[in-house]
Design a protein around this nucleic acid. Structure first.
Lengths: 332, 332
DNA sequence: CGCGATCTTGTAATCGTTTGCGCACCTCGG
DNA sequence: CCGAGGTGCGCAAACGATTACAAGATCGCG
């Protein structure tokens, strides 16, 4: 089977000692005569021995693994490939590897409310990072009451769990102000308000308008996933030919917008200016390069992991916001 | 700690039975009186009990987890966010979830040759899927000799390990033929020949030219990762103003090409036609929408998982190729 | 040469589950 | 009323590692 050909006991037999001695020799820190240690280590290496992690973890009461959970509907495969998630996951992976922890990745359909408890109680991981609270605030609150090592990426408000995120409202406001400053007066908001993050971005959009004394433009309810019938939704563009700016709730939505505008022969940024959100890798390479709001995901990932490890040690790490800035390129 | 508040023994005490009985009651299949079973189940649910996976796995000699390994250099965070990987990972995630297995994701810097053995012997996973053989063919061959449950994504040749992939040579030939059929006569190949997959695509590119009796165009050595100095490399475009077609080794490279061409005022497809490779999600939404070679990653993921599980059961599943087709959009 | 200090290694318990085996108890036909 | 055959459940041994405790070996010193 998968079982390594050798166990601690096998090595012990070969070396003419007990498993205990082998364990000590390999872990190094206890007092073992140099001779035995040398012999044991040599035999172990010779046979490519690796201690069984499962047994080790059982004994040590930990798993050396962190679960990364993405709460999604059934379109998981589609949404998980959103560059935001993947960039974040890549960064988290690096950060966890640095701390010698494995990454257990799972997308869950949050239809049943027990998904988090399931993962938390199963003992598969020492801690959990949830990417995007989505509409699962209640579940998160509930879980946080009894489960400590939990960090969530999302909109940080007065939530009882540890949450890392950006000031989405400010982000939405920033991009809108940029368009207003550029003289745009008929600015649409593209994105669905189905998560706290996006609601906050929309709030910022509204606030910027209010402060500038400009009437907000129409709302284009584009879903995150491309495949959906967003083409129809973008027919909205035809119904509102006076739109001269678009605040997109994500870079992917912005990309979609660039595409649809191009299809309709409307030039960016001359006719319509577009601002994205996330600054995903491809943003800089779109046609035209996308002006967008950057969330520093490298810092975010490092921060989340750091907070998580502090919580795993019993500390009470607080929610934190990571900085955010507008990256000025050519689409607006 | 992370330890669930309740163990099998706790539940047993509460129900006035032994752990053995609880175990049986919960697993359901053994002979337990309906009364006891009901009582045990009720108490267990009431306390949100989940059996400890680590202990369970130790006893059962398995882990219910599959390791997905991406051999990369230190730029892991960057390359892992390539849409190809992420789409594949998303699909694999779904497929594994369907079989009730967790996914252990790790990127490794293959500097030391022991990376695969390390994962294989550690007993953290019941099987391994390696995404892209990259330049690790030797390591894979070596590992496959003693470790059975291993499936690799890559260029399938006469390798001794189980390998799933597309006919890259045919893919490269297909896209080149498409350009030739469209009357292009000065076709560049964009991509670095640093992996077997890309070498094969380039072979196809050459073969198509040979069969058509057309001289191959220049080679533009663009790396996979965006960030690199590809801008300089694309200066090649300036040096070869007669290029009228580009065969890109990946969609991301094609996207980069679209961008650079647009910067230089050369229109796609009128002046230069571009064909990508992978048909990643964003391909359809580029400006203009990208003509590309689609590898059916959904099928590929399902296949890889299927083969892996068969190997885990001791069967000897063979290398397989998944179909591939040209998706005709507007860039060529 | 004897005795305590020190160094090295073995013994055995433990982590939480699963499961083969066997012991009660119950039922029922003769 | 007794033994055969069934049920329902407990006992205890795994799985493979770690580690407190103890025991044996060795050494130093008086």
């Amino acid at each position: 089977m998968t079982r390594p050909l050798t166990t601690l006991a096998d090595i012990a037999a070969l070396a003419g000692v007990t498993p205990a001695t082998v364990s000590r020799a390999l872990s190094g820190n206890t007092r073992i005569s140099a001779a035995t240690r040398g012999r044991v280590i040599e035999i172990a290496e010779q046979h490519g021995f690796r201690p069984n992690q499962t047994a080790r973890n059982l004994r040590l009461g930990r798993t050396q693994a962190i679960a990364i959970v993405v709460p999604l509907g059934h379109q998981s495969a589609q949404r998980i490939s959103d560059p935001f998630y993947t960039t974040m996951i890549g960064q988290l992976m690096d950060e966890l590897a640095r701390r010698d922890h494995a990454m257990l990745l799972s997308a869950v359909a949050p239809s049943d409310g027990g998904w988090l408890a399931q993962i938390a109680r199963s003992g598969r991981a020492d801690g959990i990072i949830v990417l995007c609270q989505s509409d699962q605030d209640a579940v998160l609150r509930e879980a946080a009451r009894s489960y400590r090592p939990l960090v969530v990426w999302g909109e940080t408000e007065d939530e009882p769990y540890c949450c890392v995120g950006t000031d989405n409202k400010r982000g939405g406001k920033l991009s809108t102000m940029h368009l207003l400053a550029g003289g745009r007066r008929r600015i649409a908001f593209a994105g669905m308000m189905d998560t706290p993050e996006l609601v906050a971005r929309h709030d910022g959009y509204l606030e910027a308008h209010r402060e500038a004394g400009v009437e907000p433009g129409p709302h284009i309810p584009v879903p995150f996933a491309f495949e959906a019938a967003s083409r129809d939704l973008y027919a909205m563009l035809d119904r509102h030919p006076d739109i001269d700016g678009i605040v997109a709730a994500s870079d992917m939505i912005a990309m979609k917008a660039l595409h649809e505008l191009s299809q309709r022969g409307r030039r960016v940024p001359n006719d319509v200016a577009v601002v994205g959100y996330d600054d995903v890798t491809v943003a800089a390479h779109m046609v035209p390069p996308l002006t967008t709001i950057r969330q520093d995901l490298t810092m975010a990932a490092a921060l989340m992991v750091d907070l998580l490890f502090r919580r795993m040690q019993g500390e009470d790490a607080p929610s934190t916001r990571v900085p955010l800035s507008l990256i000025h390129r050519q689409s607006a």
